[in-house]
């Protein structure tokens, strides 16, 4: 793995250089206090020290709403939406968001491969950047270090006010051809970044906890505070559920079929045509969401499906914390074990 020094003041030059290769998307300020990934027009507008964007990279590969089909009702003919693969560079991505993309890849490839996602995703280039964990990040607890470089082509690790630039593969080194401002690093200084927000257990032990807490009181306590707005689903970088709807033109002769992000926290999510709702209570919905992140897929794939980005907590209007939920479940589990065996788990 090659490593170079990159001065902070050279980052805009790097962005300008990358823009000549392909469109570049990077974090920008959005509103007063928030960030979002946007296409870079001026390198100076890119924010390198950001806590988290509102939406993750999911929005580029599985857009919040997209047309699937166009049709003529009169002629009863249907065509699929044309999607052209596009080389795009995603710059300044945090490791948890990269890990989320890898998890989405799995969900979208497994079983029936999802062509729309794959077409948008296949030519993407990822350039990572380190971050300072804030009160909400807990990715370390789910096995993702700040400096985790899996999935990236290049990675920028901040050291004091400058960066180490890691070249991780051929795509990465191709990106830097003709970029002159690099000086090789001789001794890489490693340091640990501290996470204030943590899960009480190593993530390996969490599926075991979830084996025992399906009927925990924790779900009811969360439900008392939850308004079911779905923010946690929609902002989660590994949630991918969607709804499908038809929309017709005013002349009622043609129309389109669209899909739009949906979420299991929303009341109608598990409702069938006859009116039966298979998850009609808040606590059932919260439980389903959290089990999807720590148990159901984790049992199959061995890693948590939560990447510890902290979005669901940072943006929850009711201030419900996912780490609190999991830690309370762990507490509940320990109490159960103690009651059963007299031994502290």
């Amino acid at each position: 793995m090659e490593c170079y020094h990159l001065a902070q003041k050279a980052v805009p030059d790097l962005l300008e250089h990358l823009k000549k290769i392909a469109p570049v998307y990077a974090p920008h300020q959005k509103g007063e206090k928030s960030y979002s990934f946007e296409r870079v027009t001026h390198a100076s507008e890119v924010v390198l020290d950001y806590n988290r964007t509102m939406l993750s990279l999911k929005k580029f590969f599985l857009p919040p709403t997209e047309r699937l089909l166009q049709y003529s009702i009169q002629k009863q003919n249907v065509v699929e939406e044309e999607i052209k693969p596009e080389k795009r560079i995603f710059f300044g991505v945090h490791s948890y968001d990269m890990q989320a993309v890898l998890r989405l890849d799995h969900n979208m490839i497994e079983g029936h491969p999802e062509p729309n996602y794959i077409l948008r995703r296949q030519d993407a280039i990822f350039i990572g950047i380190s971050f300072e964990p804030d009160d909400y990040h807990f990715s370390r607890s789910v096995g993702i270090r700040v400096e985790e470089m899996e999935g990236f082509d290049l990675f920028l690790n901040k050291v004091d006010t400058n960066y180490y630039l890691f070249i991780l593969n051929k795509e990465g080194s191709d990106l830097l051809k003709g970029f002159q401002k690099l000086k090789a690093v001789k001794d890489i200084v490693r340091f640990e970044r501290n996470f204030k927000n943590k899960l009480k257990y190593h993530y390996n032990r969490i599926p075991e906890v979830f084996q025992h807490v399906y009927h925990s009181e924790v779900w009811q306590k969360v439900a008392e505070r939850c308004v079911g707005c779905g923010t946690c689903n929609l902002m989660c970088p590994t949630c991918y559920c969607f709804d499908v709807m038809d929309d017709v033109a005013l002349d009622v002769k043609s129309g389109e079929r669209r899909r739009q992000w949906d979420g299991c926290m929303l009341t109608p999510f598990a409702e069938v045509a006859g009116g039966e709702n298979f998850r009609d209570k808040y606590e059932q919905r919260t439980r389903h969401r959290v089990y999807r992140k720590f148990k159901y897929i984790t049992d199959q794939e061995g890693v948590p499906w939560c990447v510890g980005c902290g979005r669901c907590t940072a943006f929850c209007p009711a201030g419900i914390s996912l780490t609190d939920i999991v830690n309370n479940l762990i507490q509940d589990y320990e109490n159960q074990q103690y009651a059963k065996t007299g031994v502290v788990a």
Binding site: L68, V78, H106, I109, P115, V303
Partner: peptide, 20 residues
């Protein structure tokens, strides 16, 4: 976990396309 390189590209289309 399945990775992008586990499948042949381009992915087959038509997943959501009904046959009339």
């Amino acid at each position: 976990m399945k990775h992008l390189h586990d499948i042949t590209l381009p992915a087959e289309r038509g997943l959501y396309l009904p046959t009339m």
